[in-house]
Design a protein around this nucleic acid. Structure first.
Lengths: 296, 296
DNA sequence: GCCACATCATGCACCACACGCATCAACTCT
DNA sequence: AGAGTTGATGCGTGTGGTGCATGATGTGGC
C-alpha cells in the first residue's frame, strides 16, 4: 500500500486523460498517444474507476467533461508539467548545472585567485548557488574532511592526507614598509637587511605554517625577527605597518593601498614561493564540484 | 509517445523512491511498501535508468542520496502530495462539495426566498462558490436553456417548456398607496375601488406577464387602469408612489420603506397568488446543482 | 426513411513487465 | 575469520495493458 497516496492512478493515465479531454474524441486522442482506441477507452474507464469519479459525461456517444473532469483536467496538466520539471531539475543537478558550491578561501585569495576562478565558473554555470566565506587553511581542511564544504582555496605546504589538491598559483613573499622607511626607495630588499627592524606578522593562531615559515626564513638569514605585534588579517597588518609599528613580510598578492602610506618591495633572496591550492575531498561526489574542478 | 511528458516515470516509482529515500534501506522500505527487496531494488534502478540520473550513491553497500537525489526527493514528495490533492478535489467536485453555482433571481426574491435558500445551502456547502446576480424571468429561462446559468429564481405562470421547475412560494398582490391617500386608513381594499386612480406599474419590457396580468385583473374588476408611469424595479415604483404619482399593485414581499411615505394594503379580491419558482435545465448534470435542488 | 458512417464499449488472445523466490556479492561487526 | 546484513541479479510466473475484431448506438446523407 502506498504511503503518500493510495490511489492506483498513474502519470500515464493522467497524460491519456489530458489528451482525451483536449480532443474530446477517443479515436483522435488514441492516434496522438500512439494507442488504439479500445486501449485508450479502457484506460480512461480504469482511471474513472480508480478515482470513483466520472470525468466524462457520455451523452449521445459523445464525450463532454463533467464538472469534476474540468477540475481534474487543470490539476492533471499541472501535475504533468511539474513531473516534467522535476525530471529536468534532477538531470540538470546530476550534470552539475544546478546546485550549490560551498567554497571557502583564505583571505589572500580574494585579491586575485578567487575572482579569477569564480568569474570563469559563474560564466559557465550561472545557476549554481555559490556559498562563499573566508576561512583559514586549518579550518578548511577539517571542513573538507567532514564534508561541510565542497572546495577550499588554501595554503598547503605539502600534500594534505585524505584530501586531493592542486596548486593554482605560486605567490612570493614581499616586504611591506612604511612609506618613509629608509629602505622604501630601493627596488629589492635582502632579508638580512631587515635584521634590526621591528616586525608585524600574521598571528600563529590563524595559520601557524605561515608564521613559522617566515620566522624560519629570518633565522636562515641570520637573525631572529623582533615581533612587536601580530595581526589576524592582512588589512590589519598593513594598517599597523602604515602606522609605523614596524615592517612586515606578506604573501603576494597584497591588498591595494595608498602608496603614500605603505610600499611593497620584492625580496632579493631566492625564497621558495608560497603555494595557493584548490583542495577537495576525493569522497565528495558532488557534480557541481566536478564541474568546478574541470574549470580549475 | 507522451505529449506532455515523455518519460516512462510513474507515480508508483516516485512513491517507492520517496520511501527508500526516507529509510535509506531497501529492505525496510520494501516492508513499508508491501514489496520484496529485490522488486523494490529493481524499481529504483529502473527509475534511475529512466531519468538517466543516479539518485542514490551506492557507497559500501549503503544508500546515500546524491545531490540530484536530494533535489528530486523534494519534487517527488510535492508531486505525490499534489496528486493526492487532485484526486480529492475531483472526488469532492463530483460530490458537489466543490464548484460553482450560477444562480440568478428576480428582484422580488431578494427580500425573502433568496436569503432563505442561500442560507441553508451555504451552511451545508460552504466551499461552493456562489455566482449571484439579478436577472429578469425572461432572460433567466434563456440562460438556463443555453446552460449559461445553473438555476433561476423566477416568476413562472406555468410550466416552462424544456425546463424543470418547482414553486417555492406563493406571493399575493398588494396595493401600495401614498401615506396620505384616502384609502390608506383601510386594512383591505377592493380592486374596483381603485378604478379612478392613476397607476405606477412594472414596465412591460422586463416581465410582460406581470404587467399584463395586473391589467387583466383590473379589467375583470370593471376598469382599465390609467398608467401614468412605469418603473423597471420595485424600488423605483415605490419611490414614485411616495412622490404621489399614483398607486401601484406589487408582488409581496415588498421592500421595507418609511410608513410615513408609503403604505402597503391587502386586496380583498380573491386573486390567485403569484408563484416564485426555482427553475433548472434537466440536461444540466452539475453535482452542485443536484445538491442545491436537494435542499430546496 | 433507410443505410452508410462515426464513435465508444467489449470480448478475446497475447505478450511484456513487474513481481516473488532463490541466490550471489560485498561490506560490517564481533 | 566467520556470521550477519544488505543490495544486486537470474529465473519462472501471473497480472494487466495492448491490439484486433466486433458490438452497440447515435448521426448524417440522399
Amino acid at each position: 500500500m502506498r504511503v503518500v497516496h493510495d490511489v492506483a492512478m498513474e502519470l500515464r493515465q493522467l497524460n491519456s486523460f489530458v489528451v482525451v479531454a483536449e480532443e474530446l474524441n477517443v479515436g483522435r486522442a488514441a492516434v496522438r498517444l500512439h494507442l488504439t482506441q479500445p486501449s485508450l477507452s479502457r484506460q480512461i474507464a480504469a482511471l474513472e474507476h480508480d478515482l470513483g469519479v466520472e470525468l466524462f459525461a457520455r451523452v449521445k456517444r459523445r464525450f463532454v467533461l463533467t464538472a469534476a473532469g474540468e477540475a481534474f483536467l487543470v490539476d492533471a496538466k499541472e501535475l504533468l508539467r511539474r513531473a516534467d520539471e522535476a525530471v529536468r531539475t534532477a538531470q540538470r543537478t546530476h550534470r552539475g548545472e544546478l546546485g550549490t558550491l560551498r567554497l571557502r578561501f583564505v583571505q589572500s585569495a580574494t585579491f586575485e585567485a578567487l575572482p579569477r576562478l569564480l568569474g570563469t565558473f559563474r560564466a559557465a554555470y550561472p545557476e549554481v548557488v555559490l556559498d562563499l566565506e573566508t576561512m583559514t587553511t586549518l579550518r578548511q581542511t577539517d571542513a573538507l574532511r567532514d564534508g561541510r564544504i565542497d572546495v577550499g582555496l588554501l595554503r598547503l605546504p605539502a600534500a594534505e592526507p585524505g584530501l586531493s589538491s592542486r596548486v593554482v598559483s605560486h605567490d612570493p613573499l614581499v616586504v611591506a614598509l612604511p612609506a618613509g622607511h629608509r629602505l622604501a626607495k630601493r627596488k629589492r630588499i635582502g632579508l638580512a637587511e631587515l635584521a634590526e627592524e621591528t616586525f608585524v606578522l600574521y598571528t600563529r593562531a590563524t595559520g601557524p605554517s605561515v608564521h613559522d615559515a617566515i620566522v624560519g626564513y629570518c633565522r636562515a638569514a641570520g637573525f631572529v625577527p623582533r615581533i612587536v605585534q601580530e595581526g589576524a588579517d592582512v588589512q590589519t597588518i598593513v594598517a599597523l605597518v602604515a602606522a609605523g609599528l614596524g615592517v612586515s613580510l606578506l604573501i603576494a598578492p597584497t591588498p591595494p593601498i595608498d602608496p603614500e602610506a605603505v610600499v611593497y618591495r620584492k625580496l632579493s633572496d631566492n625564497l621558495p614561493p608560497w603555494q595557493l591550492s584548490v583542495a577537495w575531498s576525493p569522497d565528495n561526489s558532488s557534480p557541481v564540484l566536478e564541474r568546478f574542478l574541470q574549470l580549475v
